[in-house]
């Protein structure tokens, strides 16, 4: 690395939404945005008629992850609002789809990111919105 100033080890209290742990979240959300939407794209393109509901929810999940990633990347008041809405929908989505996929297995013959509370993805989809919302809450604007 060229001679950059000595890295700060502690975060200032007013640090931005998209630094620190926020940057880790940005990375993880980006990965999920990519994998969820790619999965939905493949499902809809190759065998949409098999489980329309599941594949549409797959696409919705992809869009939610994309908007959460964008919100975390923009930061600031607007980015925070986008991320807040996305993470809330994400939390509802993983809980509702997770429950539905167990209760009504017929409608979900093929897995989505949120099926079985994200067990196919190491339950990361279940944990992620909680961390995201906590991080967004910590960065609420103070007057």
């Amino acid at each position: 690395m060229p001679d950059s100033p000595a890295p700060a080890r502690t975060r200032p209290a007013d640090a931005a939404l998209n630094t620190g742990l926020g940057r880790v979240l940005l990375f993880v959300y980006g990965v999920f945005a990519l994998s969820a939407s790619a999965r939905a794209l493949v499902q809809i393109a190759t065998h949409f008629s098999e489980a329309r509901l599941a594949y549409l929810l797959s696409a919705v999940a992809g869009l939610v992850y994309i908007s959460a990633t964008i919100g975390l990347a923009i930061g600031g008041e607007r980015g925070r609002l986008i991320a807040l809405v996305s993470c809330s929908i994400e939390l509802l989505g993983v809980l509702i789809v997770g429950t539905l996929s167990i209760a009504d297995a017929v409608a979900f013959p093929d897995d989505t990111v949120w099926s079985h509370y994200g067990s196919g993805y190491g339950y990361v989809p279940l944990v992620l919105p909680f961390i995201g919302l906590w991080w967004i809450y910590r960065h609420r604007p103070r007057n």
Binding site: S4, P7, R9, G20, R23, V24, F27, V28, G30, V31
Partner: peptide, 25 residues
Amino acid sequence: PVAIYLARMEPTRWGNLILGVACLV
């Protein structure tokens, strides 16, 4: 490469967490 790019923007412990997560995925 993406993880390294993000980690270089984040010269804190979180930079190492980004690299660590990438190595887990």
